[in-house]
C-alpha cells in the first residue's frame, strides 16, 4: 500500500520516511514501557520474553519476570497503543470532516454517553463485561441521538452536528452527575469517579481480544476513507460538486469515530486530549494531507498513550488517573504547538 502516493518521488519518499520514523518510535516506546515498572527489566530480557512466544529462545529470565511481561505489561501496553491510535486517528478525521482544528472526537457526545452507561453500571453494582457493554451501548445511543436530532430531511450541516453533539454531551454529563449524586458516597461514588478518570490498570488479554477487533475495524474504516476525508475537508458544496455523497460519507466517518470513542471509554474510561492534541502534533510532522496525517496520527497517538500510561503507573507509588495525566500533559503541549504554529505562519 502506498501511504500518500504524493504523485512525485520526493513526496512519496518523504511520506514513507515519516511513517517509518513514527513506527520505529512506537516500537521503542513500547519496549521502554515493557521495561518500566516496580520491577524494572532490561530491554534484552523483555525482547527475549516476547520473542520466546514466537520462536524458541533459551530463557535467561525468571518465571516471575515472564509473567509480569506477558500477563501484566504486554496486554496493557497493547491496549494503550490501540486506544491511543484510535483516539488520535478519530481526532484527525473529525477535524478534517468538520473543517475545524479545535474539535476532538468527544464533540459527538459519544464519550459522555459512554460515561453515563459506565456510571449507571457501577451504580447498579455491575462490573467487568457488563460495565463495558453498558458503556458501549450508551455511547452508541448517543451517536444515534445526535443523528436523529441533527438530520432534517436526511441532511445535517457540520455546524448542526457540532451543536447537537454539544447538546447531547451536556445532557449525558448531567445524567452522569445525577448518577454520582445518587451513588453511595463510600462505595459506588468513588468507583464511578475513578472509572471516569480513565485507566488501563485492569487490562488483560481477554479485554484486548474484545477491544482490538472493534478498534481495528473502525481504524481501517477511517484509514480507508482518508482520501475521501481530504475531499470532505474542502467543504460541503465543493465535495458535492465533485460528485460525492457527502452526507453518507460524513456519517460513515462519524460512525467509525463513535465506535472508537465508545470502545475506548468502555475499556479505559474517559481519556481526553489525545484526539485533540496528537493530530496537531502529527500535522507538524506529516503535513495536512489526511492520506498521511491519519496514519501518522494513529502511530503518534499510540506512542503518546503508551508513554503517558507508563508514566501513570510508574511515576508515583499509586497509579495516577490516565485522563488527569493526558490533560496535564496535553494542555501545555497544545499551547506550545499553537504558539509554534502561529510563529511558523507569521514567518512563512
Amino acid at each position: 500500500m502506498t501511504i500518500a502516493a504524493g504523485g512525485s518521488m520526493s513526496h512519496d519518499r518523504g511520506a514513507t520516511l515519516v511513517m517509518v520514523a513514527l513506527a520505529v518510535g512506537l516500537g521503542l516506546v513500547m519496549v521502554a514501557a515493557l521495561c518500566a515498572g516496580r520491577l524494572s527489566l532490561s530491554p534484552g530480557t523483555v525482547l527475549g520474553i516476547v520473542l520466546s512466544r514466537i520462536v524458541p529462545v533459551d530463557p535467561s529470565w525468571s518465571d516471575l519476570q515472564e509473567r509480569i511481561v506477558l500477563l501484566v505489561r504486554l496486554p496493557r501496553v497493547l491496549l494503550a497503543a490501540i486506544c491511543g491510535a484510535a483516539l488520535a486517528a478519530a481526532g484527525a478525521a473529525m477535524q478534517g470532516v468538520l473543517r475545524n482544528p479545535l474539535v476532538s472526537p468527544h464533540i459527538l457526545g459519544v464519550s459522555s454517553g459512554a460515561s453515563f452507561g459506565g456510571a449507571v453500571a457501577i451504580l447498579l453494582g455491575l462490573s467487568g463485561w457488563l460495565l463495558i457493554g453498558s458503556a458501549f451501548l450508551a455511547g452508541s445511543a448517543a451517536l444515534l441521538l445526535v443523528g436523529a436530532i441533527a438530520r432534517v430531511d436526511g441532511r445535517a450541516g457540520t455546524v448542526t452536528v457540532v451543536l447537537t453533539g454539544v447538546i447531547v454531551a451536556a445532557l449525558f454529563s448531567a445524567l452522569v452527575s445525577l448518577t454520582q449524586f445518587v451513588a453511595e458516597p463510600d462505595s459506588s461514588l468513588p468507583a464511578i469517579v475513578f472509572w471516569l478518570m480513565g485507566s488501563f490498570a485492569t487490562a488483560s488479554w481477554r479485554q484486548l481480544a474484545a477491544a482490538a477487533p472493534v478498534l481495528a475495524l473502525a481504524l481501517m474504516l477511517v484509514l480507508g476513507l482518508r482520501f475521501r476525508i481530504n475531499v470532505l475537508s474542502l467543504g460541503e458544496d465543493d465535495a458535492r460538486a465533485l460528485g460525492l455523497p457527502v452526507e453518507r460519507d460524513r456519517w460513515l466517518v462519524f460512525l467509525a469515530v463513535a465506535l472508537m470513542e465508545a470502545t475506548v471509554v468502555a475499556f479505559a474510561g474517559v481519556i481526553g486530549w489525545v484526539g485533540l492534541v496528537v493530530p496537531h502534533a502529527a500535522r507538524m510532522i506529516a503535513g495536512e494531507d489526511h492520506r498521511l496525517l491519519i496514519p501518522a496520527s494513529a502511530l503518534l497517538g499510540a506512542s503518546y498513550l503508551v508513554l503517558v500510561d507508563t508514566i501513570a503507573r510508574t511515576a508515583v507509588a499509586a497509579e495516577i488517573p490516565l485522563g488527569v495525566l493526558t490533560a496535564i500533559v496535553g494542555a501545555p503541549v497544545f499551547a506550545l504547538l499553537l504558539r509554534q504554529r502561529q510563529r511558523r505562519e507569521l514567518t512563512a
Binding site: N230, V231, L244
Partner: peptide, 21 residues
C-alpha cells in the same frame, strides 16, 4: 493542500469510497 493534490481530488468519484489516487 498542494495544488496537485487539490486537482487530483477531481478523481474522487471514480476512485470509489476507499480509493486513493
Amino acid at each position: 493542500y498542494r495544488a496537485l493534490d487539490v486537482v487530483v481530488m477531481a478523481r474522487a468519484r471514480s476512485l470509489g469510497l476507499f480509493g486513493t489516487p
